[in-house]
Design a binder for these strands. Structure first.
Lengths: 162, 162
DNA sequence: AGTATCACTTGCAGTATGCAAGTGATCGTT
DNA sequence: AACGATCACTTGCATACTGCAAGTGATACT
């Protein structure tokens, strides 16, 4: 990890610095997909329900890699493929994502079942250490579903085991 | 200028919904200023170290108000002034800001003293309830300083205890 | 050899951002 | 009441970023 000859920063405030790296509509969504959905390849992201454009995806992956949040590595068995994976710096964003998830689920109409969210809120530490465990052991089974629907009607959506 | 059909969401995922409201370089910075710095007026924000442009500031305040995160109210004693204040939905963003703060302080060179951050990390719940107390009681004394400096010397990376 | 797949690029129109300057309502002072 | 200062924004404009469609080159498959 080399140093960063980055652009001049607005201020030394950590929140501001975070937002300069992650403050856009897509970056944290990519981190989410890597963290909880088990996405690894460029193609995987294109299948995500938010339909990110390929040029934006390529740009964000490049920036996230430059920021040391994501690591890219060509697959040995198929050299067309590039495997993306979170770095430790990347997996350390788990609390941010979890809080954004809980916040929106509480205040907006989301596709997430209320019971699931309350469970995650209650077991915050367990959820975070499970996310970290999956990252460490390269366990790609999704931690959360895709929340396709805009509203939720008491349906169960996996993850009962935790 | 007609309003646009902004009801259209990319997906039902709570993280995506959060990012559609807050996913830019400025919105969470404004929330931070309201939450920990005691800012209330338009002028206050212009004095912030990140130097937000006035048109962007006006636009973001409008959007945050439309999203129910900020409440705007003209002051009775001086009707030129508008007082901005977080709603409960807004103060509920405290965990997100705290996590972004901790994350950047751990992984980037920030203007925040390491000891302060480690303390906040350790006393997470206390910090959050103090932020909420200040909000509830309209206590405007800043919870955090401005972190003007760009660099901080002699810091440890802070994961030693884990 | 020919086709499919993968990870991107490129072109371009539309949108957002950043900067400087300006506007109107209100206040404090004369 | 007149005057200038203050406050919260607007406006104009050049530049940067985004989103969509289409294209490209390097593998891999048959």
């Amino acid at each position: 990890m080399p140093a960063k000859p980055k652009l001049e920063r607005r201020s030394g405030c950590p929140v501001s610095i975070s937002l300069e790296m992650l403050g856009d509509r897509w970056s944290l969504l990519i981190v989410r997909d890597l963290m909880v959905r088990g996405y690894r390849t460029f193609k995987d992201f294109q299948g995500s329900s938010e339909k990110i454009a390929t040029n934006i995806l390529a740009d964000r992956l490049k920036k996230l890699e430059a920021a040391g949040i994501v690591h890219a590595e060509p697959e040995t068995t198929d050299r067309r493929r590039v495997n993306y994976r979170l770095t430790e710096k990347g997996i350390d964003l788990a609390p941010v994502l979890l809080d954004l998830l809980i916040w929106a689920a509480r205040h907006e109409e989301t596709g997430a079942p209320c019971a699931l969210i309350m469970d995650m809120e209650k077991n915050r530490e367990a959820v975070l250490s499970e996310a970290r465990r999956r990252w460490r052991e390269r366990d790609l089974t999704p931690l959360l579903p895709e929340f396709k629907g805009k509203k939720e009607t008491g349906r169960k959506t996996g993850r009962e085991k935790l």
